[in-house]
Computed example of a mutant assay.
Amino acid sequence: MGDALGSQFFVPVNRPLLQRRETPPGPWQWTDDTEMACSVVAVLAAHHRIDQDELARSFAEHHDFDRGYGPAVNRLLRLVREGGDWRELSAALFHGQGSWGNGAAMRIAPLGAWYADDPEQATHQAEISAYPTHQHREAVVGAMAVAAAAALAAGPDGPPSGEALLDGVIDLVPKSAVAAGLQRARDMLDYGDVGTVAAVLGCGRRTAAHDTVPFALWSAARALGDFERAFWTTAQVGGDVDTTCAIVGGVVAAGRAGTPPEEWVRQTEELPGWVPGR
């Protein structure tokens, strides 16, 4: 839902609605963020862990070019469908550095909810899940951070405080630009000016993990248990709105208190029929 509604604000005619916190008419179509998240869920349902080969196969098999994938991942998934080795293709991206984009993070919140009783395992499985498409350290850590946040939000004792959420995530991820951004996010939890926070942390305009994940988790931490507030806080600063809202929505909704508005549920495109438990 965060992905689908967030994507509506790329349309110029809908942007004035943000200031009034009004939603555009539905149905709201989801993007590649949700399509890839569905593959994560399908692999977990089938294997009870992340199987990288199966995940890459599912990404490639269900790849819909019109869902807004970036050009590098579009090409990678096409080549995987044609028999290419995801290990070689993913490692070769961006002159052999691998992608540091936010794609591995945007799709991973459901995995965190899956491992609600084990945030360390969520972090480990998220790391494994990133490599079929994103092998740069920052992209991998971004996925780890979002999965850890969702697992902590979905814990049996209910969502933690915002401070506890970010502290828990920081403790679970390795040293990186993403981790440094999360520490800044922790220090800025009391800031009321969302625009200032986004200017410091980034809001996905560069579609990089370290320019996306710290702000998204700051926003989630500020509104655990309140999906609607979390969405509007995130969307109002612009940037990569579908991705930041997908991350925030996934983390907040992982907690039992983070139920989305029923009216929004009705306007969101249904998940594809191949998703287990749909």
Rank of each mutant, 00 (worst) to 15 (best):
M1R: 07
G2N: 07
F9V: 11
F9R: 10
F9I: 11
F9M: 07
F9C: 10
F10A: 14
V11L: 15
P12A: 06
N14K: 09
L17A: 13
L17K: 14
Q19N: 10
E22T: 13
P24V: 11
W30S: 05
W30H: 14
T31K: 02
T34P: 03
T34A: 05
M36D: 05
C38L: 01
S39Q: 15
L44F: 13
A45I: 01
A46I: 01
H48Y: 00
H48N: 12
Q52D: 03
E54V: 09
L55H: 04
A56R: 03
A60L: 04
A60V: 06
E61K: 11
Y69P: 01
Y69F: 15
G70K: 12
V73W: 01
V73Q: 02
R78I: 04
V80T: 02
R81G: 14
E82G: 08
G84F: 07
D85N: 14
W86R: 09
L89T: 04
L89W: 06
L93H: 01
H95T: 09
G96R: 11
G98I: 00
S99T: 04
G101V: 08
G101P: 09
N102H: 07
N102V: 08
N102L: 06
N102C: 12
M106D: 02
I108D: 02
A109P: 04
P110R: 02
D118G: 08
P119H: 04
P119R: 06
Q121D: 06
Q121V: 10
Q121H: 06
A122R: 04
Q125G: 03
Q125H: 12
E127Y: 02
E127F: 05
S129I: 12
Y131A: 09
H134C: 07
R137G: 01
V141K: 06
M144L: 04
A147W: 02
A147P: 04
A148P: 13
A151Q: 08
L152Y: 11
A153W: 06
G155P: 03
D157G: 15
G158I: 14
P160W: 06
S161I: 05
S161P: 07
L165Y: 03
V169H: 12
I170K: 11
K175Q: 14
A177P: 00
A180G: 05
A180S: 15
A180Y: 07
G181V: 10
G181H: 07
L182C: 08
Q183P: 00
R184A: 15
R186D: 00
D190A: 15
Y191S: 08
G192F: 05
A199R: 15
A199N: 13
V200L: 14
V200M: 10
R205A: 15
R206F: 03
T207R: 13
A208W: 02
A208F: 00
A209S: 14
H210A: 12
P214T: 10
F215G: 10
L217W: 13
W218N: 03
A221E: 08
A221Y: 07
R222V: 03
A223E: 15
A223P: 01
G225M: 04
A235C: 14
G239N: 10
D240L: 07
T244H: 02
C245D: 03
I247G: 05
I247S: 05
I247C: 05
G249M: 12
A254N: 02
G255E: 01
G258Q: 12
P260W: 08
E262D: 15
E263F: 00
W264H: 06
R266Y: 00
E269H: 13
L271K: 10
L271T: 11
L271A: 13
P272S: 14
W274H: 14
G277V: 10
